[in-house]
Nucleic acid binder design. Structure first.
Length: 571
DNA sequence: GCCGTTTTCGGCCCGACTGTTTTCAGTCG
């Protein structure tokens, strides 16, 4: 180890001690020592061996021993211990402007938050501003700081990629010579996270230089990676990589299909083409040397004797086989949704009051809205006491009359560690529906967690299981739970399963949705909205539902309020 | 954890700024 490495190690010790709440002067001692060691002239070996290290101002008994250990072995037990004690996410939080060790420790201790993703979620749920010494402004700053940090990560939530792509498409739409700009890739397939954005547009060769210049000269291209005859690559101000492909009108459907992928889907499609005597690539479908003219993706599939395969299904997970026999179902559409469930209000941790949420849901065209604030045990989120439940019930009924839209009175009840719901029977009887969610003790062993959720499902008050795995995309791994066992229980008990459409969750995962539908389990697409804007997440859930092969009949909130209530009734 | 000296422990850089709270704590440079 050279001076620089050792200085870095000492610096790291200082930072970790700071986060651990150590004496700030001890922290500074390490920081001073780090600087001191970089100042030592000449080779470090001599100083270590001769013991001259101790003569350097800022390096005393303890630190000189640690330097010796680092120098001799390349590692340091003390540092390893500290690293094991302090979560790496807390180190990342230090990079956020406005957060120092004190506040980070408060966040860690009161909210149990250890990753940036969890912190972001807490900001969006308005939990950060409730901490002592925090407020609206600081919460906003933290959120902005997290956004900045995320710029440099290589994967992005679907919704972020979508917004970026919309901007690129809008820009292209305004450039002369461009037609049909649209997104392809994993974004079009509605994957829950997206790496790069692929956009294609029909542009005749003579216009391409001008279109490329319009892109590279725009604010959307924060840095240009490359610009050629057919492709412009750049990074957006949010750090997303974006490839814009320019092709001819004739190539368009083939390239659209090719760039939409997935890779496995494309390989299987080429295999099928070959079997039928065609050759297929990103520029066309050929019979011998002759191009088979297709004006749309629809016609490409038809040429290969396949039913049209919606982009969301193109994962080579049985869609081609299904299309062979016309077995691709009519997938759910946005317009199929009649109601919206799992809506929070300022009664617990929502940003907007009940009336505003209900009005906003009505304005979005929903004919009913299911309020579900947090239950008693969710103290961090302002969970409702049994008394507050009764007060809110009156308010909900009054809002229904006042606003003129059906309002269902529900609750998002914590599923307590022992599997019970969060209220006594008399209180539970007051709700039109009960969503049961795990919000605590995530670290249970798989069998234990599964039993916990099954026990809650046995209670006939439970209508629906919320965000089954508890995952936060790009932030928190799902907790251990046997999802299949839960789905089978849901089928047996007639319990609805939530597809939580919050872009950070998208939970149930699309990979298991299809199985749920196969078991006859009804899925409810819920925004888990904590503010007016969050209600629209319901539509994001539609993409995931489609990706999980769901049709309108598989979804609770495509039913009328009356029928939805009947389907949620147990006994 | 280091320093200095007062040899055994008290002091360690500090002002501007922000956002909170209403007199100040925490962060930043």
């Amino acid at each position: 180890m050279d001076k620089k490495d050792i200085a870095a190690a000492l610096e790291e010790i200082g930072t970790l001690l700071d986060l651990a709440g150590e004496n700030p002067f001890k922290v500074r001692a390490y920081q001073n020592a780090a600087r001191a060691i970089e100042q030592i002239p000449g080779n470090l070996d001599d100083a270590v061996v001769s013991g001259k290290l101790r003569e350097v101002k800022g390096i005393g008994e303890g630190i000189s021993q640690k330097i010796a250990e680092l120098h001799a072995t390349g590692s340091l037990g003390y540092l390893d211990e500290l690293r094991a004690k302090i979560e790496p996410g807390l180190l990342e939080m230090l990079k956020i402007h406005g957060l120092g060790p004190k506040r980070i420790r408060l966040i860690r201790e009161t909210l149990g938050i250890t990753t940036l993703g969890e912190l972001e979620y807490a900001c969006k749920e308005n939990r950060l501003k409730l901490l002592e010494g925090f407020g609206e402004k600081l919460q906003e700053n933290v959120l902005r700081g997290i956004e900045d940090l995320k710029k440099y990560k290589d994967r992005h939530l679907w919704v972020e990629a979508h917004h970026a792509a919309e901007q690129v498409i809008t820009l292209l739409g305004g450039v002369r010579g461009v037609s049909d700009p649209q997104a392809a890739g994993s974004l079009r397939r509605c994957r829950e996270t997206v790496g790069d954005i692929d956009v294609l547009a029909a542009v005749e060769p003579k216009d391409r230089a001008r279109v490329a210049a319009a892109l590279t000269g725009s604010k959307l291209a924060a840095s240009v990676i490359g610009s050629g005859d057919t492709k412009v690559s750049f990074r957006t101000p949010h750090g997303l990589g974006c490839d814009v492909r320019m092709i001819t009108r004739a190539e368009y459907p083939y390239t659209l299909h090719h760039l939409t992928g997935s890779k496995d889907h494309n390989a299987a499609m080429r295999g099928r083409a070959q079997k039928l005597g065609f050759k297929m690539n990103e520029y066309g479908l050929y019979k011998g040397e002759r191009l088979v003219p297709c004006a749309s993706e629809d016609e490409i599939f038809a040429a290969l004797k396949l039913q049209y395969i919606p982009p969301e299904l193109r994962e080579n997970m049985g869609e081609i086989e299904a299309a062979e026999s016309d077995a691709i179902p009519a997938l759910l559409q946005k317009d199929d949704l009649l109601g919206v469930m799992h809506v929070h209000t300022s009664w617990s941790d929502g940003r907007n009051p009940l009336d505003e949420m209900v009005r906003a849901a009505k304005d979005l065209g929903f004919s009913y809205v299911g309020i579900a604030d947090h239950s008693r045990s969710a103290a961090y989120a302002g969970g409702l006491s049994p008394e507050r439940v009764r007060e809110q019930r009156k308010e909900v009924r009054a809002a229904e009359d006042r606003i003129g839209v059906r309002v269902l009175f529900g609750i998002e009840s914590d599923i307590l560690p022992d599997g019970s719901l969060d209220y006594d029977k008399k209180t539970l009887d007051l709700f039109d529906f009960v969503i049961g969610s795990v919000h605590s003790k995530f670290n249970m062993e798989r069998g234990e967690m599964t039993r916990r959720i099954l026990k809650a499902m046995e209670d006939p008050h439970l209508s629906m299981v919320g965000h089954l795995t508890g995952r936060l995309l790009l932030a928190r791994e799902p907790y251990e739970v046997d999802q299949e066992v839960v789905l089978h229980a849901a089928a047996r008990f007639g319990v609805v399963m939530e597809l939580n459409a919050n872009p950070n969750r998208l939970d149930l995962d699309w990979r298991i949705l299809r199985q749920a539908a196969g078991l006859g389990v009804l899925v409810s697409i819920n925004p888990d909205a904590h503010e007016v804007e969050g209600l629209s997440d319901t539509f994001l859930g539609v993409g995931i539902a489609r990706k999980g092969w769901l049709s309108a009949k598989d979804v609770l909130n495509t039913r009328s309020a009356k029928e939805a209530l009947e389907r949620m009734k147990r006994n």
